[in-house]
């Protein structure tokens, strides 16, 4: 088991390196030239500059920024494998992703690492609430539908889940804004908190934020419900038709005991693994939801960054997404083995 985990971790590192190199290369395809931008600024300041002087300054700047170096060298510098270019004092230090330097956001004019804090907080609150509510609804609903298979309620739930699964999230969001924010006026249309409000306590502030998140959560629950309900239902139906359930019933056990103690425990296996994988996505946030509700979360930050060509920010966030996804995969795989002893993971 330990050997397997180590192997997987090593594999994870390799994948991360490949993906980061890929991302860095894609990022470098963008026609942008900081050296030229800087040289143009100098030319603006000094009108008498000759084209030769300009060219010299430009080439000098390119050298200074390391733009003439091969891609792999720049990548290694960005990752922090080799020392950064020497500064004015001639000191060269490792200053890359591995040293915790996520880069500098051109749009926010602030280090990326300082920019990510608040959005991350919003995203985590939003997603935790969403996951809890979704699970609280879908698991009982799935069990209920499996037990009452082909009943009217089951059929109705099936239809609702197909609709929820089929309609794009942004349409659900628009319809929900129309119903709950515009028509009924229950929730605010967007934003993360009441602008300009002062709160007596942290608790009130949290309440205000939760109030603003109510509608996004509602939308996320509605469109996220479908998959989980169907999964729980399918797993339960599978298990309810098993021999051990028939045996339990034949023993004369209470139907409740059969369902919750026997069938549900076994049906839990496939469900729990996907829940664990799903749980990691709470850090990533949803671009569509956060953009539609102008909620300052990770997805919204990513959208703003990409909109404003703030590629250093976007690249750092992309790397973060990849790490979250890879760890999520690993944990999902491991949890298969932990939850279900029949599955041997080290194969």
């Amino acid at each position: 088991m330990v050997k397997y985990v180590l192997k997987r971790l090593g594999y994870l590192v390799i994948v991360f390196l490949i993906v980061s190199l890929m991302m860095f290369a894609i990022y470098n395809l963008i026609p942008s030239d900081p050296a030229r931008t800087e040289a143009e600024k100098l030319r603006q300041a000094d009108r008498n500059m000759t084209p030769e002087q300009f060219e010299a300054i430009y080439q000098n700047l390119r050298e200074q920024y390391g733009l003439n170096d091969p891609l792999i060298e720049r990548y290694a510098r960005w990752m922090g494998f080799i020392p950064d270019l020497p500064d004015s004092q001639g000191n060269a230090v490792h200053n890359g992703l591995l040293q915790g330097n996520l880069g500098y956001s051109q749009f926010y004019k602030i280090d990326v690492i300082d920019q990510i804090g608040a959005p991350m907080e919003n995203t985590i609150i939003l997603n935790v609430v969403d996951v809890i509510i979704t699970l609280a609804i879908t698991i009982p609903l799935g069990i209920f539908c499996a037990v009452r298979k082909r009943s009217k309620i089951d059929n109705a739930v099936q239809v609702v889940t197909i609709v929820g699964n089929s309609i794009p999230q942004f349409i659900v969001a628009i319809v929900f804004i129309y119903i709950f924010a515009v028509l009924l006026g229950w929730f605010p249309v967007g934003g993360a908190e009441t602008p300009g409000a002062s709160f007596d306590s942290e608790f009130e502030r949290l309440l205000d934020r939760l109030y603003h998140m109510a509608l996004p959560v509602l939308v996320m629950v509605f469109s996220g419900m479908a998959g989980m309900t169907r999964m729980v239902r399918a797993a339960m139906i599978d298990n309810l038709s098993m021999d051990y359930v028939r045996t339990a019933r034949a023993k004369g056990l209470n139907e409740k005991v059969v369902i919750y103690s026997h069938a549900w425990r076994n049906a839990l296996l496939p469900v729990i693994t996907s829940i664990i994988g799903w749980f990691l996505s709470i850090f990533s946030g949803s671009v569509v939801i956060e953009q539609t509700f102008s909620l300052n979360g990770m997805g919204y930050l990513y959208w703003v960054g990409l909109r404003n060509f703030d590629y250093e920010l976007v690249l750092a966030m992309q790397m973060f997404y990849v790490v979250v996804a890879l760890i999520g995969n690993l944990i999902t795989d491991l949890s298969y083995g932990l939850v279900d002893p029949r599955v041997r993971v080290n194969k």
């Binding site: 994948v15 490949i18 993906v19 991302m23 894609i26 990533s284 671009v287 569509v288 997805g299 990513y302 959208w303 990409l306 976007v314 966030m317 992309q318 997404y321 990849v322 979250v324 996804a325 890879l326 999520g328 995969n329």
Partner: peptide, 13 residues
């Protein structure tokens, strides 16, 4: 690797 990349952000970039 490709399947594990978050779809929408990756497609966006």
């Amino acid at each position: 690797i490709i399947g594990s990349l978050p779809f929408i952000p990756f497609a966006m970039i």
